[in-house]
Design a binder for these strands. Structure first.
Lengths: 240, 240
DNA sequence: CAAGCTAGGCGTACGATGTACACCTGTCAA
DNA sequence: TTGACAGGTGTACATCGTACGCCTAGCTTG
């Protein structure tokens, strides 16, 4: 019952192999390019062979998402602000590598990497930052909404600005002769961004810093700088 | 060539009818519940009849998204902060009514309501708030990322907290005997939220206010209170 | 070494989906 | 009256996820 290769040297399939191949295939061909049949072909196997390692396509996606979570770092041993900053940047990078995962990170049944990640973030906010529970939840929701939302924008508008922005507006201009003249502020966006360019990285930093600044200003936050604070609000010991 | 009904009283199809029925159907059955065949059945018509009013399913979705944009209000004649606050809340409400639109608002070819909306928001930021161009872009990206990201969370976690949160974690507990003990901070979330409940509306307000506060603090912003400011940075007159 | 159990790959088949293509029909302009 | 044309119909096809049963290699066990 070994899973990598049989004694005779025959290659055998593997849950991990299936998941990794699926991620690779989705990275290249997008989410709707990921097909059980194509995935099987990639692994030189017949489609139905996959179902010995994965219950169905939804479970396959669950496993893929957990692989993405595993790529996101949650640094410890630094002050909470840079820890949260790095986590957000790391999450953005992971979603940039795997655009198909955008909007799917919190769907389905959470895997082990998912749970580990959320626990680590919550620990940072509670123990290191010293937020009371309610505020930690607020902070987490705010940061996640921003990161996921930004990744969504970056995905759908990827390479869009300024090149594609002009193209999209142009499509409308061609359709109705009134054109962009009705939308002077949109026209400004097109021309201005065409001139000066657009960097998603800078854009991301701006919003992230603004949010972290706002959180640092919260009165409930003791603005401690090290993660070794032994004055944690509570090391929770809740049981289900 | 009338489009509502023929002289004989025969009901005829309509692009608007198709779009509205599609929205209705997606509201009920979710996005993957929306099928050309089901949509046709809903309209008492054969599937291929739809293609006389809509090029393909992608164009159908474009039209649906524009209907959602048309539901979002961009108030004028108030100070920019409450205008942006109301717009964000209105967008969230619209995405709550049409969860299938979450993550699809900026995809495909933008329709007229889309263009009108973006132009109005940009006008508010430039003329009313007085942001210089670059800062207006920053502000817009930040707000949109937050609103879209929050809507995404609210959609995927809908009714999830505290009830479903417990269920999801429980699923993992059942799977591996180690259970939630490895994740004390997650356990706290489960028990604490089960006790005190969770209100998405409050959560949304917290993040939105923090962001708008941060934007108000920007040095480039003159913190004017009325939208009648004639000292706009520039009434743009850009031409493609 | 023989026997048989089982994990795991294979083949076939089915219903659902989007949509190309040809056809048919009712309405209106000329 | 006629002919064009907008718009609804019917058939057909490739592709999808996956249910069901078969088959075989390799391990466990007597």
């Amino acid at each position: 019952m070994q899973d990598t290769a049989a004694a005779g040297g025959r290659e055998r399939l593997n849950r991990a192999k299936v998941l990794n191949a699926a991620v690779e295939l989705a990275d290249e061909g997008g989410f709707e390019g990921l097909t059980m049949r194509r995935l099987a072909a990639q692994l030189s196997v017949v489609p139905m062979a996959l179902y010995k390692h994965v219950a169905d396509k939804r479970e396959l996606l669950d496993g893929m998402v957990d692989l993405v979570f595993a790529e996101v770092e949650v640094p410890a041993d630094v002050d909470w602000r840079t820890a949260m900053h790095r986590r957000a940047a790391s999450m953005r990078q992971a979603l940039l590598r795997h655009p198909w995962a955008v909007g799917r990170m919190e769907t389905g049944t959470p895997g082990p990497a998912n749970l580990h990640h959320h626990n680590a973030v919550m620990r940072c906010l509670r123990r290191d930052a010293g937020f009371p529970f309610r505020m930690a939840v607020h902070a987490y929701n705010l940061m996640d909404a921003y990161v996921y939302g930004f990744a969504l924008q970056e995905k759908t508008l990827a390479g869009d600005i300024p090149a594609e922005a002009a193209r999209r507006q142009k499509a409308v201009v061609d359709r109705k002769p009134t054109g962009l003249d009705d939308y002077p502020y949109l026209a400004e966006v097109v021309t201005e961004l065409a001139k000066t360019g657009f960097a998603f990285a800078d854009e991301f930093e701006f919003g992230l810093d603004l949010i972290l600044d706002g959180l640092s200003r919260m009165p409930q936050q003791a603005s401690r700088t090290a993660s070794s604070g032994s004055n944690a609000p509570l090391p929770p010991s809740a049981r289900t």
